[in-house]
Amino acid sequence: MALHFELVTPAKLVRSEDVHMVVVPGSEGEFGVLEGHAPFMSTVPDGAVQIYKTEGSAPEEIQVRGGFAEVGANGLTVLAEHVEG
């Protein structure tokens, strides 16, 4: 019961871990991704990606700039041009 989440920038693979839920600021509104999400693709404008490690835990925020999110069979992949922090 975990979502495989990857955050990748051109410089490096920032995150690759199993988490509970990730909230991504899509270009047409925020969306949360849980395990078993339907295949989905969206552009991501500048904003914060919130990562919930477990159910009910406090979210960890990562600022991303210029990105792209893809949900597929193997989890969520966020491709960002820049990541802060």
């Binding site: 339907a38 295949p39 989905f40 693709m41 969206s42 552009t43 792209f68 597929g72 069979a73």
Partner: peptide, 17 residues
Amino acid sequence: EDNSGAVVEYEPGEEEI
């Protein structure tokens, strides 16, 4: 080919992306 067989949703449209 996405072997899951499910239709991928795009937001906004495919061309915009």
